[in-house]
Design a protein around this nucleic acid. Structure first.
Ligand SMILES: [Zn+2]
Ligand SMILES: [Zn+2]
Length: 551
DNA sequence: TTACTCGGACTCTCAAAACA
DNA sequence: GTTTTGAGAGTCCGAGTAAC
């Protein structure tokens, strides 16, 4: 498997390991590499005296195939030159085909080479001549590869062998930076442009570093450095994760400020990795600078995120259906001080091979008296729709549905919720409607949730009607939703029971008409709201702050 | 016990630089 | 034009881990 970024060139120093120790010799099968010009090469390329168990027997050079098959490449296992290769034959893998190789870049300036010894004889036998001999140092140089001893010499960052007496070019920008470690002679050589590494990003990913330097740099960069969001570099100050609410600035300043919700801390893009997660999504994903596995990370998506917080805001739902079952009068702006404890789940995971649609969610939960009314079909998310149910007190109105902009106006979520720990705070607002940005067959999370939510029970309808009557005009008190409704984990998800049959067979108006006149008017508004919803007219505004975590 | 993952050691290739 | 350099780009070892 090709690694991300350049790999260091090691001095070709090998441990002297007996052939039966397995390091190379047990894997060396001449029959597998008979066509290799190196199959018969046996050379002592150096020895490390540090290994007490080593003997002085020569070791065979490791032979590798020119092109590994796709399976072996992915598994980082030895391939053979036959097709299907030996490994694929052994494991019965199909489609054993050659992997593809990227064409080598051209036009990259390399800086001056070390002078050849013929014209610039080395006055000291310390450079190449010495390097070909077993070294008394812990490292051994090979004459063919005098470069890249970066862990050994302080000035190897420039790519020059310190044993060489070639004058080193003046170095520029010799400073520690996690992103421009300037280990390439090109990078520091005057007049040369900074080397363009992968993806055309100047200096990214960084050239190889020493272990300590690299680890520290990765850590620092992960915390404070840029991240990659949708293929673009993003700077995210730490303070954003520390209780500040500046999504507007963030979005406007870094993403064009066109009014649309854009990836950020509040609404991170799907491919954005949590800074401390070194492994991230899939192999070598996440942190683009590391292939390390995060000790706290997971190799799979977090199955559940829970957001806990308090909310205070306003909701305006032209469509009364949205608030059905939660005592919120329609067509009215409701101030609420409700506490919200929405479950936080990925709204959609279109990359989940197992998911044909919205990702499944655990059954409903009850938290501090709040029923969390997410459903298997409509998982709720801070980045999707949030539907809250009845608060304990009939006086307060919980939010009906909160959906932020991202959920309904941005590209479809494609991966996990990146934030593992962190504060989620900010404004939730959104428009509910079919989103053309979602792939065919996928509705926006908000819409998914709404389509489920707008199938309330008659009991709920009556409660809502009472709620409307209980609005500021001094109407009678509403009847609180029964506890059974609140605790139902699938309040909005179960097949319609008898009292809801009218909704299914087109006789819902008939049922509505059994209510009072307010309910009738409500039904009218509801139909109107349907159209509005389809047009993306329904809006919800709410604020929420709290902590999120994943379990 | 076997299979898998993946960090990083190691190898190979070939454009650039040096040289004739 | 030829040789050499040396870094890009790849292979795959082997330790750790997960799955069975
Ligand atoms: Zn293979
Ligand atoms: Zn194969």
């Amino acid at each position: 498997m090709p690694t991300l970024g350049p790999k260091p060139h090691s001095a070709q120093a090998y441990l002297n390991i007996p052939p039966d120790t397995g390091l190379y010799s047990s894997h060396y099968d001449p029959s597998l590499s008979h066509d290799s010009p190196y199959a018969d090469v046996s050379a002592v390329l150096g020895a490390r005296p540090a290994s007490p168990s080593s003997d002085h027997s020569p070791r065979k050079k490791r032979v590798q195939v020119r092109i590994a098959c796709i399976h072996c490449q992915k598994a980082c296992k030895k391939c053979s030159n036959t097709r299907p290769c030996d490994r694929c034959v052994k494991y019965g893998l199909k489609d054993c085909i050659d992997s593809t190789r990227k064409p080598r870049k051209t036009g990259v300036k390399r800086g001056p080479y070390k002078r050849r010894s013929s014209k610039y004889p080395d006055p000291m036998p310390s450079s190449s001549s010495m390097s070909s001999l077993p070294s008394s140092h812990t490292h051994t140089h090979h004459s063919d590869h005098p470069h890249n001893h970066q862990n050994d010499h302080p000035m190897d960052n420039a790519g020059y062998d310190l044993h060489s007496h070639t004058p080193l070019p003046p170095l520029q920008n010799q400073h520690f930076s996690p992103f421009s470690p300037s280990q390439s002679p090109v990078a520091n050589y005057p007049g040369y442009p900074e080397q363009d590494h992968l993806n055309g990003n100047m200096g990214f990913p960084p050239p190889p570093r020493s272990a300590l330097q690299g680890s520290m740099a990765n850590f620092v960069s992960a915390l404070s450095g840029p991240r990659w969001v949708n293929g673009q570099r993003e700077h995210v100050p730490l303070s954003l994760n520390n209780g500040q609410m500046n999504t507007a600035h963030h979005e406007a300043s870094e993403y064009g400020g066109d009014g649309a919700a854009t990836p950020g801390v509040m609404y991170p893009s799907a491919t954005q990795a949590f800074p401390l997660s070194l492994g991230g999504m899939g192999r070598r994903g996440g942190d683009p600078f590391s292939r390390a596995v995060s000790p706290i990370g997971t190799k799979t998506r977090p199955p559940l995120n829970i957001n806990v917080g308090v909310g205070s805001g306003q909701s305006h739902f032209p469509n009364p259906n949205i608030n059905q079952g939660i005592n919120t009068p329609p067509n009215e702006v409701d101030k609420n001080e409700a506490q919200s404890f929405p479950p936080v789940l990925d709204p959609l995971d279109v990359t989940n091979k197992d998911a044909e649609g919205p990702r499944s969610a655990p059954p409903g939960m009850t938290f501090n008296g709040f029923q969390l009314s997410h459903t298997p079909e409509s998982p709720l998310s801070p980045f999707g729709a949030q539907a809250l149910s009845q608060p304990p007190s009939p006086k307060s109105n919980a939010w009906g549905v909160n959906a932020n902009m991202r959920s309904s106006s941005q590209e479809p979520p494609t991966s996990r919720l990146p934030a593992v720990f962190g504060a989620h705070m900010g404004m939730n607002m959104g428009s509910f409607g079919d989103n053309p940005n979602y792939p065919t067959g996928y509705a926006s999370p908000a819409l998914v949730a709404l389509k489920r939510i707008r199938k309330p029970s008659l009991k709920t309808l009556m409660s809502a009607t009472s709620s409307q009557a209980n609005s500021r005009d001094g109407s009678p008190m509403l009847t609180p939703v029964q506890e059974g409704d609140l605790e139902s984990p699938t309040l909005f998800d179960q097949p319609m029971n008898d009292e809801m049959e009218g909704w299914l067979n087109g006789r819902h108006e008939e049922g509505i008409m059994q209510l009072d006149g307010q309910a009738s008017a409500r039904a009218d508004r509801e139909r109107e709201g349907d159209r509005e919803r389809e047009a993306g007219e329904d809006l919800g505004f709410g604020g929420m702050m709290g902590m999120g975590f994943s379990a």
